[in-house]
Design a protein around this nucleic acid. Structure first.
Lengths: 243, 243
DNA sequence: GAGTGGTCTAGACCACTTA
DNA sequence: AAGTGGTCTAGACCACTCT
């Protein structure tokens, strides 16, 4: 099982072996693997060596552990959600159109001084007053993405006093302020979540997130919204049309 | 330094402490941390406990290790390359425009039967003949992304015999086949690299990649190219304009 | 040769789940 | 109570880098 002279460390050989077992369908998503003790006996290695293999495979997302229960093969890709981004993207409609149940919860709402990056994207001076609105969006009751939105404070007076009324952000902006923002650009990055984001999205910190930064302008070209959205990497596939 | 009764494990306390030190600028990107032995002495814990903290922080991308040298604070953010994607994106020009040196190397070129996903995107029958062209693109001599491109074989006869001539893919397609593909859509995902991709991109398997899938059509609307590109997450920021 | 991280073993105790 | 993964200690040897 383990080749002591292969030049490859034991735990790497174990990783390859288990990866093959999973790829080959010997263990299917959701299956329990043998316990660490059993694997140690099977491969004739110490339990800590088993653990090193398990931990690396878990970090890679192939398996996950539950204390007291065992180690399990990860659910493949929990149904990637194809999320379409266009000039006017509306989360609620977007999700409902594919037969899923959207949800939204406001995490933070406050007026702050614009940091350099925020000010630059909103075409304001650094330190200008902006409204920060952070929302958790969920699909079928499960966390999907966190969106941090910034608006020039003078364009959205009293927004924070009406936070409870927000169900669809775009409807809200149109109804109260006559704002109909359209997307001018978006950037995409793959990174790891910060501690807070990981907790809210209910993912471990070593699971990647897709970060989308966008700027929106009104019909007259003034920038009225800048947002940074972190999508769960295991759930999200963002698609952009160029038509 | 370590609170034995905090309820938090030692290695997690160490992780928090070191994260704070890095965030606070005590250790800057590229700095060497104290050795594992030294950290063990500082925190009054065993070297293995130190290692567990180090390994998790490395998995998260905060630090990296070099055998025989030490442990260093990662330098990730500063070198982000803003890569613009539009209807007609040309890697070579794109990179040169921002003053960097692009490079390309063909990894694989072969004619294969189209798998379901490839066929569907190229609007062909599953099993139809397609040309696969896989290229590594680098910036300033460092791996940046791997692009796997598929073309209907009947549109690009003899492509594989001229692989050596490819420097700019789009120039090549235009010159030899009169093809001028324009992008119709792209999808973005954040995941982990496969073993081969990780090796070619020179990143560990637990560092995220940004996967961009795109379809390109000719002027008459026929799909002439489908590609899957894996960008190094630590280097890439893909931007899309909606104008 | 001294110092670094990488791997492996051995044994212990803990927290949690299940029966 | 038995089994599981989680944490910690202790000691050993290795491969590599630097000087």
């Amino acid at each position: 099982m383990i080749d002591k002279n292969s030049g490859l460390s034991y735990y790497r050989q174990m990783m390859e072996y288990i990866q093959k077992q999973v790829d080959g369908g010997v263990y299917k998503p959701g299956d329990r693997l043998p316990s660490e003790k059993e694997l140690g006996a099977i491969f004739h290695v110490n339990r800590h060596t088993v653990r090193q293999a398990m931990m690396e495979l878990a970090g890679r997302g192939l398996i996950y552990t539950e204390r007291g229960k065992g180690t399990f093969v990860a659910r493949n890709k929990p149904e990637l959600i194809d999320y379409k981004v266009s000039r006017r993207t509306r989360f609620t409609h977007n999700i409902m159109d594919v037969g899923l149940i959207p949800g939204a919860r406001v995490l933070r709402g406050m007026e702050v001084a614009a940091a350099e990056r925020v000010a630059g994207n909103l075409r304001l001076e650094t330190g200008a007053r902006v409204v920060l609105l952070e929302m958790l969006r969920s699909i079928n009751q499960e966390p999907f993405c966190i969106s941090t939105n910034y608006f020039p404070a003078h364009l959205t007076p009293g927004l924070l006093t009406r936070i409870d009324e927000i169900s669809s952000l775009y409807d809200f902006l149109d109804k109260h302020y006559g704002l109909r923002p359209t997307r001018t650009y978006s950037t995409f990055q793959a990174t790891f979540p910060g501690q807070d984001d990981a907790a809210v999205l209910e993912i471990p910190r070593n699971q990647p997130v897709l970060v989308v930064e966008s700027a929106m302008t009104g019909e007259d070209g003034t920038v009225i919204q800048y947002s940074v959205t972190r999508f769960r990497g295991d759930r999200s596939k963002i698609s952009v049309g160029f038509d």
